[in-house]
Design a protein around this nucleic acid. Structure first.
Lengths: 168, 168
DNA sequence: TTGGAATGTCAACAAAGCTGACGTATTATG
DNA sequence: CATAATACGTCAGCTTTGTTGACATTCCAA
């Protein structure tokens, strides 16, 4: 790890010590538990899992997305996604329609029931996020996002960026 | 989600919009993938999983910890941890010694081989973290940590704080 | 001495990931 | 038009990591 001159040259680089990095790693681990705790509770009651949440979330975010596209966003195999998707379709939370231009594709949408669950889940997750944001303040939130973005894989970041500025 | 007056009244509260919160949620999801990617690769080669990594990490951090203590840090059942611990002990990465004051307890340590794997894993994870920290800068890192800490459950935060200021 | 705490183990199960193989439309390409 | 490639679904089987529940052992403490 050669350390050339930094833009912050002259500033303290103590935030790059192994000790500081370890704290960040542990913070990430512990915080992620909190991050998923509230949706997890809701899902358990309905005998769904985190995988269902992820599918619902991204179908909501990218309505009419194809199976293949969802696959690459989630980073799982089609067999794995298919199992989740099948139950969501059977339970009437997701609708799958044959593509018009390309009839091989299936376009995915949330049904009203699916949208209702999506709202319940994201409300719960946002509540905790909002409390954390409010406690930390806007400057901290900007830093939070910056570090997270820098932590992503290249390919992942493209997915993130693509979704970033699409309005709700 | 009604938002009453905030302590920061007068300041911009745009960072608390649902849109901003959603971006934070997605950033968290995508970043966590990157966060675990490098150790995961190393572990797959050795046919271990993320659970083994977590056990090794916290045994390293809290040498001589008991099984019960590790249980509450990791937030899993003893049966689940036991399976992981058993393979690590069989493979000679972790040593379990009967407690002196309380002989019911088992105290856990890393063997030299376990410490070597721990180093390999945390080096990989720190490399990515360091790159992210460096790209974002010290102010962003401070904010990052603040938001993560505010996101934790109460009980989880205690574990985090307890480990926070113990030197390497 | 008796009750409870800490640990370990057996069995059974579920969620969610994986690989590999195969079938079936549909589209693209030679 | 024939063939190749793509998108999707599904079957089978396996792995990791979590869960409950039941039960035994050991040992501390009241």
């Amino acid at each position: 790890m050669s350390d050339g001159l930094q833009p912050q040259t002259g500033q303290s680089l103590l935030f790059l010590t192994d000790e500081q990095l370890r704290k960040g790693i542990e913070a990430m681990f512990f915080a992620y538990r909190g991050f998923t705790a509230d949706p997890d509770r809701i899902l358990t009651d309905k005998s769904y899992g985190r995988a269902h949440h992820r599918a619902i979330h991204f179908i909501h975010r990218s309505p009419s997305t194809t199976v293949n596209n969802l696959l690459s966003i989630l980073g799982v195999t089609k067999q794995s996604l298919n199992r989740v998707l099948r139950t969501l379709i059977e339970d009437g939370l997701v609708a799958s329609t044959v593509g018009q231009r390309d009839k091989r594709e299936r376009h995915l949408h949330l049904t009203p029931a699916g949208a209702a669950l999506e709202r319940e889940l994201s409300d719960a997750q946002r509540d905790r996020m909002r409390a954390a944001y409010r406690a930390a303040g806007p400057a901290a939130v900007a830093g939070f996002r910056q570090v997270l973005e820098a932590m992503m894989d290249e390919e992942t970041r493209h997915h993130y960026e693509a979704m970033k500025d699409r309005p709700e």
